[in-house]
Write a protein that binds this DNA or RNA. Structure first.
Ligand code: MN
Ligand code: MN
Ligand code: ZN
Ligand code: ZN
Lengths: 127, 127
DNA sequence: AATATTAATAGTAATCATTATTGTTATTGT
DNA sequence: ACAATAACAATAATGATTACTATTAATATT
């Protein structure tokens, strides 16, 4: 993987936010410094960065979001505002060693949480 | 929701399989008895059946799968062959009462498992 | 039973996120 | 410098799903 300023900028943007951005959001941001960048370039580099394990991709409904935090962690999605939050769950407390389910060999356990976020709960109380 | 033989046939097909079919798979099946059915009709009815809670929808990568088993249960996806299996996990053993994460109100907990299924593990051993 | 109402249909066009293609540019090794 | 080619910008293609439109058929009303 040879250097490009486009990829450097994309990585910087993802590492400096905690909004779990979509490709489109990244595109809007990077255009501020590289106005003529192509959306295809953003997608290509996001895929390369995921392959290189420099970022994570998380699926959210019909879109893919990206995450600069490569430490394994879970996510909570607010059904009201759509924001995605990191969740620090001591995984061992909730998910004991699942190596096998029946005769299936389990390699990947993902916990997906949904609900109403703190901000939206707060706003709800003001009505 | 008024009666239609198309919807009846679609529901029957989904209830009589355990493959967690996609809209396209259902379309191929229902065409055997209703050859001129439209793919749009399949999608429309699948959505109606989900809304009426007669079937479940589960997201799998870029496609939506449907499930005639409306009892809450988890799924295991084989990364080798792509099959989706039901998983009987006594949920309370793995997911204690999560009502709140920090100040977020959790309403929905989903456990997603991936790995190599029993069949594929077996085939692997024959090499 | 005939007629009216309108939900549901078949056929097809549109949408939207993502990927592929193509000709050009820029990075890297010699 | 120069050659090799990865990465680029621009744009076309893809694929799952949804929307549109004229027609058909299920149910209600006479
Ligand atoms: Mn995260
Ligand atoms: Mn199932
Ligand atoms: Zn919220
Ligand atoms: Zn398998």
């Amino acid at each position: 993987m040879r250097y490009s300023k486009q990829r450097e900028e994309i990585l910087k943007i993802i590492r400096n936010t905690n909004v779990h951005p979509t490709a489109d959001w990244v595109y809007e941001q990077v255009r501020k410094t590289i106005p003529n960048i192509s959306l295809g370039t953003v997608y290509r580099n996001l895929n390369q960065l995921v392959a290189a394990e420099l970022i994570l991709s998380i699926k959210d409904n019909t879109v893919v979001r990206y995450d600069g935090n490569v430490n394994p962690h879970n996510h909570f999605k607010c059904l009201r505002c759509g924001n995605v939050y990191d969740v620090e769950i001591p995984e061992n407390d909730f998910i004991p060693q699942i190596n096998r389910i029946g005769a299936h060999r389990v390699t990947n356990v993902r916990l997906e949480l949904e609900g109403i976020c703190a901000d939206c709960v707060q706003k709800e109380k003001l009505n």
